[in-house]
């Protein structure tokens, strides 16, 4: 399977997905750290891909996403943004609303 297909599958199977440098517990970049912090503050489960250990995805995703940098937060198959956008949305409360709504849509209990 080529890398773009793998990315599409990841986006299809994970409604809240963060492509980042390192892991949520050990981010390897200040921008990834800030993004994951904002996402964790929403209190919902999310998936992540460490692009430092997945060089194929790191190389292919910017072209697919039309977005040259990491981290990238994707919700419901759509690019929400990188660190700056996620931080702005966190401050305004939009991020929590988006993430909570997505989590509720997946698990309606």
């Amino acid at each position: 399977m080529d890398t773009i297909e793998i990315i599409k599958e990841q986006l299809q199977n994970n409604q809240i997905l963060l492509y980042m440098k390192g892991s949520p517990n050990q981010p390897q970049c200040g921008f990834s750290a800030r993004t994951v912090e904002a996402l964790m503050a929403c209190g919902e489960r999310f998936a992540y891909v460490d692009i430092l250990t997945n060089p194929d995805i790191r190389a292919a995703l910017p072209g697919y996403a039309n977005w040259p940098t990491f981290p990238q937060l994707w919700v419901n198959g759509e690019l929400v943004g990188g660190c700056d956008i996620v931080a702005e949305m966190h401050d305004s409360g939009e991020l929590q609303t988006l993430i909570k709504e997505q989590a509720a849509a997946e698990d309606p209990e």
């Binding site: 390897q28 970049c29 200040g30 750290a33 660190c83």
Partner: peptide, 12 residues
């Protein structure tokens, strides 16, 4: 926002 401190991951 001020930008966050580097955590070193950009070295490679």
């Amino acid at each position: 926002h001020a930008s966050p401190k580097c955590l070193g991951g950009s070295k490679p």
